[in-house]
């Protein structure tokens, strides 16, 4: 089989669920044709109804706020934590590093019950700050790991020269190290924001008030409610995946690089 044909088959298989959801989203409920068939006339009203009945505007705003806050905090805290961990090989810092690495292996689920209890006690269930801190805590280890590896590649001589020039350690960090972290910061932003944006599990546990719903919860409520219009649900699903898909199409180099960097280091 020529390569081109094989490539088309591969793409078709991966795109089938998207294609089917799109045709369903574009058909009115009265259209009983096969899901494979394209609609005779596009029923754009499904999208408007999805936005309205799913409270999608609110959901998008919630998701965007939580994603932005979590990502900003992850970048800030990880970039800070990584500097001493990358530079000093003291026994204390080695212990801290392996503690951080071991957190990466803890599935958050195994902590579901006590974590939920903790958030109830802190009155943090169904709050922006509660879910944000949970996201930060569980996305931070990978970010620290990536920043640490990156800082290790920055020559120590830079730090030493600055010390001779009379800079304090924080001055070095702020003026010399931070400006060099751009490439790895892009990677961390992409990995964290995609993880938070797509999150379903934590949101399902910790955002129980309907007004706090994020996009994945809104979409799942379409599908979990019996009798809801499948065409409207499909329209909601398409809207939900649109932002990340568009960003990916335009910035795919960074998305793939981020994945590879995080995996191979």
């Amino acid at each position: 089989m020529p390569r081109g044909v094989a490539a088309i088959v591969i793409c078709a298989i991966q795109l089938v669920p998207l294609y089917i959801t799109l045709t369903v989203a574009l058909k009115p409920q009265t259209d009983l044709s096969s899901y494979w068939a394209l609609p005779v006339r596009a029923a754009w009203s499904n999208f408007a109804r999805a936005v309205e009945s799913g409270g999608l505007i609110r959901a998008f705003a919630n998701t965007a706020a939580i994603t932005a806050a979590s990502t900003a905090l992850v970048v800030l805290l990880a970039a800070m934590a990584a500097y001493p961990l990358a530079r000093s090989g003291s026994r204390l810092n080695k212990t801290v590093s392996s503690f951080v690495l071991s957190i990466m292996m803890v599935p958050a689920l195994s902590l579901l019950v006590p974590l939920y209890v903790l958030l109830v006690r802190m009155r943090a269930v169904s709050t922006y700050w509660g879910i944000t801190l949970v996201h930060v805590a569980f996305n931070l280890p990978l970010a620290i790991f990536l920043f640490t590896n990156f800082i290790k590649t920055i020559p120590r001589e830079l730090d030493e020269a600055a010390v001779i020039d009379g800079s304090s350690i924080y001055g070095i960090y702020y003026r010399i190290i931070l400006p060099l972290l751009k490439p790895v910061t892009v990677t961390v932003i992409i990995l964290t924001s995609v993880a938070v944006w797509n999150d379903f599990q934590y949101s399902l546990y910790f955002l129980q008030r309907p007004s706090m719903r994020v996009v994945t919860l809104s979409i799942s409520s379409f599908f979990a409610t019996s009798g809801s219009d499948p065409h409207v649900a499909a329209a909601g699903a398409i809207l939900a995946i649109l932002p990340v898909t568009l960003l990916y199409v335009f910035l795919q180099r960074y998305f793939v690089k981020g994945m590879v960097d995080s995996a191979l280091k």
Partner: peptide, 29 residues
């Protein structure tokens, strides 16, 4: 080969879609 970049893009795309929404999309199938 021509189409190589597109194929890579398409195969990697689902990685970035929320798994729960991916599940619902498959439900239509």
């Amino acid at each position: 080969f021509p189409g190589r970049g597109i194929t890579r893009t398409v195969v990697y795309l689902p990685v970035l879609i929320s798994a729960v929404i991916m599940g619902y999309m498959w439900y239509y199938l």
